[in-house]
């Protein structure tokens, strides 16, 4: 057998061995929660989305550790487990949590798998595309933490508030939402932001785009000429409007507004409705714009 064949056979053997090892990888096992009383539950939150929903459920005091991305007021008196995408597993273990609340929206599958493999009870909330998803996650969270009734009551109140927002008939205002400036990131029709705008009586200028978040061109924004712009995100560049978009209607008429990062990025059923109310107010001309002194 010549050396080429030997080498080829060796490589094929190694690949088969590797595949076998991966296939034999056992699934993770979720241990039952030891502490079933709501009062004593020790919770580790793996991101602001989980944290805000836990606080809405009234379980903020049960959070023993969270990430550096959480609001400073939430972090006060609590331990830090690291970042959203690379949490410190040792730190999480040392907190002896009864449950870890994560989100498939921001946390890596690898860290969730690792926690499950180590026998830590983990709840990963689903990704968000709509208000229904936000509500479903909230109920799941409540059920997992023996607070389902509280969760349902909060949902009923939120939906009642939402039903009271009734945009008038007639032409809808064109709304442009900015998540980031460099590059210019906006939302398509696969996020709850698009639904927020629609419920508030507006129409997302990129509602014809079947994406969640994507980078758009300034040219396209000018072409679609939004009536209102609202923005959020870590890097705000309010000079951008005067420099790059001076000719569009929203900038000419000073209809550019800033929204809260956490409210937009880490929605709860209550803050979703808050946002719809705010956008409804902006569209009807009652909000504060960035050009006001």
């Amino acid at each position: 057998m010549n050396s080429n064949k030997k080498l080829a056979i060796s490589i094929i053997f190694l690949l088969i061995m590797g595949m076998t090892v991966l296939i034999l990888n056992k699934g993770s096992h979720q241990p039952p929660m030891e502490n079933s009383s709501v009062k004593g539950i020790r919770i580790v939150s793996m991101g602001p989305y989980a944290t805000e929903n836990l606080f809405l459920l009234g379980l903020g005091d049960n959070i023993t550790a969270l990430t550096i991305h959480d609001l400073p007021v939430r972090r006060a008196g609590k331990e830090i487990i690291g970042t959203l995408i690379d949490p410190n597993i040792e730190k999480i273990l040392s907190m002896k949590p009864d449950i870890v609340i994560a989100s498939k929206e921001g946390n890596m599958e690898g860290s969730l798998n690792k926690l499950s493999q180590l026998g830590i009870r983990t709840l990963a909330l689903d990704q968000l595309h709509s208000f229904d998803d936000i509500c479903r996650n909230f109920i799941t969270l409540g059920r997992e933490l023996n607070s389902e009734e509280t969760a349902e009551n909060i949902l009923i109140q939120s939906k009642q508030r939402l039903d009271r927002i009734k945009p008038g008939p007639g032409k809808k205002s064109k709304v442009f939402f900015i998540l980031g400036f460099k590059p210019l990131i906006t939302t398509g029709n696969m996020t709850y932001i698009d639904e927020m705008i629609s419920l508030a009586g507006g129409i997302n200028i990129f509602s014809d785009t079947d994406k969640k978040w994507f980078a758009c061109s300034v040219e396209e924004v000018v072409r679609r000429n939004p009536d209102i712009i609202f923005f959020t995100g870590m890097e705000k560049d309010t000079e951008f409007f005067g420099k790059r978009l001076p000719e569009i209607k929203a900038v000419r008429e000073s209809m550019v507004f800033e929204m809260d990062d956490t409210v937009i990025g880490s929605p709860t059923p209550a803050t979703f409705v808050d946002s719809v109310e705010t956008i409804y107010g902006l569209i009807s001309g009652k909000g504060k714009n960035v050009f006001e002194k």
Binding site: V21, L22, L84, I85, G106, G110, S111, N113
Partner: peptide
């Protein structure tokens, strides 16, 4: 990465800059 869904973007990033936290345990010994 430009066209992929954004929720997968972060997973890719950690692999591309190198990290020894999340290897599947079963491949360590082989």
């Amino acid at each position: 990465m430009a066209v992929v869904k954004n929720d997968k973007f972060q997973s890719t990033l950690l692999w591309l800059i190198g990290d020894i936290s999340y290897f599947p345990a079963k491949i360590l010994m082989p």
